[in-house]
Computed example of a mutant assay.
Amino acid sequence: MRLDIADLHLFLCVVDAGSITQGAARANLALASASERLRSIEADAGVALLERRPRGIATTEAGEALAHHARLILRQQALLKGELRDFAAGARGTLHLYANTAALATFLPSRLAPWLAERPRLHVELKERTSAEIVRAVAAGLAEAGIVSNAVEPGNVKLLPAAKDHLVLIVPKEHRLAQFRQVHLADVLNEPFVGLTPENALQDHLDYHARTAGHPFALRIRMKTFEGLCEMVAHGVGLGILPQSIAGRLRRRHSFRTVALTDNWACRQLCLCFRDWEELSPPMQRLFIHLSGSLNATSKSLCSS
């Protein structure tokens, strides 16, 4: 059989109306055209589907079978259209988003939660990487988009500012540096430090800048969480470096002071990272518009092009 969706729709309109004339009207077809298509459907089926009566039509047993399957097919088509609309509108599917440590810990939870809650059929897969790794992956086409620090060299990707992400030094309250308002990293590298575990993207970033400034951190211990790092610093084990937003939140629970870092790489912003706006999938575009607070994606101000 070579029935198409329009044929099935017409057949059901006629069956539901109980009349070819009224069914043709429901299908927005002329009576002659509808009658001709019905004859073609029956010829293609090789069996009578309708009984023509003086006051309308009735379905044969074969017609009942066709009507049953036509309803299933049209219902499935409607579901398919709805799902495709959801994908196009960014309400269904899976977004793969790369993010650095600070974005995962402080920026994304509060900004992503309400947006994702409104899209129950959408999934987001987050992957933690350093900013440099994310930029390389996006530039190479291995990742669609990410969230990075603007301290990274952007190369051929675009960076859209989304939030401040300054790094600060945290010190015990009794430490001599607690009275300082700001310091340069190179001036405190002789102090003992508390770090994060080696697989942590932020710690990899800090280790690189410590080596660039003179020599590696003298780490007394590495902690898996920011909470654990702050507790160690509060007890005088060593100094630590955290995003300002995290330090501000955890300072209420732990006794330490924050000191601004004057290094350019520490005075940073979180940026949305992508190669070309038009290449982003519609769901990713909608997410980035939400995260950046921008209403006009085509007039965005970029950190770098």
Results as ranks from 00 to 15, higher is better:
173 K>D: 13
154 P>Y: 11
131 S>D: 01
138 V>Q: 00
174 E>R: 14
91 A>M: 14
130 T>G: 04
121 R>K: 11
82 G>M: 12
151 A>V: 07
198 P>K: 12
175 H>D: 12
101 T>D: 14
103 A>W: 05
171 V>N: 02
127 K>G: 15
133 E>K: 08
120 P>L: 07
207 D>Q: 11
180 F>D: 14
128 E>M: 12
125 E>F: 05
116 L>I: 09
215 H>P: 00
77 Q>D: 12
114 P>F: 03
155 G>Y: 08
129 R>M: 13
145 A>Q: 05
146 G>L: 02
211 R>H: 10
153 E>N: 12
142 L>Y: 13
213 A>I: 00
104 L>K: 07
173 K>L: 13
152 V>F: 09
193 F>Q: 09
172 P>L: 09
112 L>F: 08
145 A>I: 02
142 L>I: 04
108 L>N: 03
109 P>G: 07
133 E>Q: 15
215 H>N: 07
210 A>I: 01
104 L>S: 09
214 G>T: 01
128 E>V: 04
159 L>Y: 07
83 E>H: 14
145 A>G: 05
84 L>H: 11
81 K>N: 13
111 R>N: 10
196 L>I: 02
118 E>K: 15
127 K>C: 14
177 L>C: 03
128 E>F: 06
139 A>M: 07
127 K>I: 09
135 V>H: 01
154 P>F: 13
141 G>A: 02
214 G>F: 00
180 F>G: 07
179 Q>T: 15
77 Q>G: 10
136 R>D: 15
109 P>A: 07
78 A>R: 15
128 E>K: 11
192 P>G: 03
